[in-house]
Simulated scan of single mutants.
Amino acid sequence: MPSPSESPVEQVVTPRVLRAWPLPDPAGGKESRGTVLVVGGSRYTPGAVLLAGVAALRAGAGRLQLAVVQSTAAALSIAVPEAKVVGLPETDAGSVSGDVPQHVLEMAGKADVVTIGPGLDDIDETTRLMEALLGAVRPGTPVVLDAYALGALSAHPELLAGRDVRAVLTPNTTEAGHLLGRDPGDDLAAAAAELAGRHGAVVTLYGHIATPDGRAWREESGDVGLGTSGSGDVRAGIVAGLLGRGADPAQAACWGAYVHAGCGRRLAPRHGHLGYLARELVDEVAATIAMV
């Protein structure tokens, strides 16, 4: 395993690599493709949960559940009729409260994948939320941590320590800096590897994927247009959906990075390298997977 300062040897993620590592293709009904629960969405950012949730469905998840603040739950249930949507307590400022209702903890305990973070906006409340949810999931459950969940983890690394979960962290470079406690610099492969070893999780960072046991990959086709509002929520949702259909965390991260980049490639001829929207990325997910 590389030392924290050593850049790992990365395998480039290509269609040939992915075709040799095919995604599970579960037979049967929606139950065979897993239930994905996405928890997040403050009063002002419910769209992040929508993007992540619909991306999970497009990636192949069988069932979708969304948990957002009570004030936006009804609107979100109309916007995403395919999902079960439940309301969460909220603070006066409109953030998700860390006082997680019992029925939501029960949902987390039954879900096949739990994604925490899209649209959250309060570190202290997110910390309490994560403590409750991570304590409720079944042993071995895949958990995707994104956005403010990563901020909470940077302040409280013990949130994951000793947990029997299969975690995937999806930081951008700013969030990686918070997790590392320093600027990640130009060697993002080394940064991803260090975070993977530190948290015992698969890390996907700006096209660099690393596992705790020292394996590493690099996705090279991502375009500058992916740096748009909501794009990270889509990436987290893709990973969650692939986990739901049975991919292991490293496979979901590698396929997720390639598919996320591929969605941008499909949109560029219509919109240019800048200007396409995160919600348009979502609509390209299924076709991009099918074309690998």
Rank of each mutant, 00 (worst) to 15 (best):
P2Y: 00
P4V: 09
S7K: 10
S7D: 08
Q11W: 09
L23A: 11
P26M: 07
G28P: 06
G28K: 06
K30M: 03
E31Y: 15
E31C: 05
G41I: 09
S42K: 07
Y44L: 13
A48R: 08
V49R: 10
A52D: 06
A55H: 05
L57E: 07
A59S: 14
L66H: 07
S71T: 13
L76C: 10
P81G: 00
G94C: 13
V96P: 07
G98D: 09
V104Q: 08
V104Y: 06
V104L: 15
L105D: 09
M107R: 13
D112H: 12
V113D: 00
V114G: 00
P118I: 12
E125A: 14
T126Y: 06
T126Q: 04
T127C: 06
L129A: 11
E131Y: 07
A132S: 15
G135L: 03
G140T: 01
T141P: 00
A149C: 08
E158I: 03
E158Y: 11
L160E: 10
V165K: 06
R166L: 14
L169R: 07
E175L: 08
A176K: 06
A176M: 09
G185D: 13
A193L: 08
E194G: 06
R198Y: 09
G200A: 08
V203N: 07
T204I: 12
I209F: 04
A216Y: 07
W217A: 15
E220G: 01
S221Q: 14
G222L: 14
D223V: 13
L226D: 03
S229R: 13
G230L: 09
G232S: 04
A236C: 03
A236N: 03
G237P: 10
A240Y: 02
L242Y: 01
G246Y: 03
G246V: 05
R265E: 02
R270Q: 12
H271L: 05
G275K: 05
A278D: 08
D283G: 15
V285C: 05
A286V: 09
I289E: 01
M291C: 11
V292T: 14
V292M: 15
